[in-house]
């Protein structure tokens, strides 16, 4: 239970706009990143992220203080993303990557590795992003929620309204598929370099 969130929500419920803005500031990057990985382009991600917070605002009354905020927030975002994907699905080929053409810039640069390794990391991340985008949406959301956003099995099960066992199965499969893809890619690279 995050007490800061609870305090802010309590204030927001009473009509305190600055408390609500504080909550938005706290979660906008996470929600935007999640939606970006879910829908695959920045414009839609931005629209959906704004819509997510608008819905939070209009549903403030339905939020019970004491109820965990983060799963509630991700549930709204997930539902919006899945609706969005469902609506536009007919226009894209099943195996087309969902990531748009622009090059992936990674803001996170770990200290230590040299330029070559950094480059490799960035390329691997770009490759992984593409593979994540190719997962079916219900696998993608489980995977992202668990590893990008650190929600528990139970929280993810609540968000997606599926049993915990389903969450575990999807996670296992998604992780295994991506691991295999990644090692395949690395093998190819290593073969080229030698």
């Amino acid at each position: 239970m995050d007490w800061v969130d609870q305090k802010l929500m309590q204030k927001a419920k009473r009509g305190d706009h600055s408390a609500f803005a504080e909550l938005v500031d706290k979660y906008r990057d996470k929600i935007y990143a999640y939606l970006y990985r879910m829908v695959g382009n920045r414009e839609d991600a931005l629209d959906l992220a704004q819509e997510t917070f608008l819905r939070v605002f209009s549903n403030l009354r339905n939020f019970q203080v004491g109820q965990p905020f983060r799963p509630w927030l991700y549930r709204i975002a997930t539902n919006l993303a899945i609706d969005h994907l469902r609506r536009r699905r007919p226009t894209i080929a099943l195996d087309a990557p969902l990531v748009d053409g622009e090059p992936l810039r990674l803001e996170l640069v770990e200290q230590g590795p040299g330029p070559a390794e950094q480059h490799e990391q960035a390329e691997l991340a770009a490759y992984l992003a593409q593979k994540v985008a190719e997962l079916p949406p219900n696998y993608r959301s489980v995977f992202l929620l668990r590893h990008g956003h650190d929600l528990s099995y139970q929280e993810i099960a609540d968000i997606l309204q599926v049993p915990v066992s389903t969450v575990k199965t999807r996670l296992f499969r998604a992780r295994e598929a991506l691991r295999l893809k990644l090692s395949e890619e690395r093998r190819l690279w290593e073969a080229e370099c030698q």
Binding site: R37, E107, R179
Partner: peptide, 19 residues
């Protein structure tokens, strides 16, 4: 590596002026 890369992928800041 899959997991740590995924954590990186989840760091995409929202555009300025979002709030």
């Amino acid at each position: 590596q899959v997991v740590s890369l995924l954590e990186q992928l989840s760091n995409v800041p929202a555009p300025a002026g979002f709030t």
